[in-house]
């Protein structure tokens, strides 16, 4: 009886307690990959601080300069062959650690890499043209259109409306009958 209970106990213990060491030589409970080279570039472990929301928000505003057209955060979490974005990420972290505010980090990047470091150009100076020309063009064209239509309408009104009233139609009853028949034949 006791021997059977102890046997069960031992079995349960085996089932529930994980082995202290992985069968493969790894670090602690983490196993190693059979073919690490196939799993892409080796990564460094990231900590929660560097993935904090405010770091992410800053990086979303800064362009990666690898030619990918993405921002730093998206590039470094998408294009894993890019070597620029992880480096830029380190720079953001370093600037934050120096106690700079979010805006100051962005300004520092502009100073360091030029205006193209920003995902969207600052709305000032010539860049305003980039932001405003399309809207202005549409508004101008719309206003012109409205003006032309308005003028044309008043011209039409001045010309006497040119409204053909029903009674000024001269049609014989036969013609009207033909029209009615043609209309009946038109499917609707």
């Amino acid at each position: 009886m006791t021997s059977r209970r102890s046997f069960l106990r031992a079995g349960l213990a085996l089932a529930f307690v994980p082995p202290a060491q992985d069968s493969l030589a790894g670090r602690g409970a983490v196993g190693t990959l059979h073919n690490p080279a196939a799993a892409g570039r080796p990564r460094a472990s990231t900590n929660p601080e560097e993935n904090a929301a405010e770091i992410q928000a800053i990086e979303l505003k800064l362009a990666c300069n690898c030619g990918c057209t993405l921002d730093i955060f998206t590039c470094r979490t998408t294009d894993f062959s890019c070597t620029y974005s992880p480096k830029l990420h380190r720079e953001v972290l370093a600037l934050r650690n120096d106690g700079l505010s979010a805006q100051e980090v962005i300004d520092a990047f502009v100073e360091r890499y030029g205006e193209k470091a920003l995902m969207a150009p600052k709305p000032q100076g010539f860049n305003l043209a980039g932001y405003l020309v399309p809207g202005a063009a549409i508004v101008t064209a719309g206003a012109t259109l409205a003006l032309v239509i308005g003028r044309r309408r008043s011209a039409v009104a001045a010309a006497g409306g040119a409204a053909p009233e029903g009674d000024h139609l001269e049609a014989s009853p036969e013609e009207l009958e033909r029209l009615r028949r043609a209309l009946r034949e038109t499917d609707d």
Partner: peptide, 8 residues
């Protein structure tokens, strides 16, 4: 994104 130093 990738494995850390060839581990899981």
């Amino acid at each position: 994104a990738g494995a850390v130093d060839g581990t899981e």
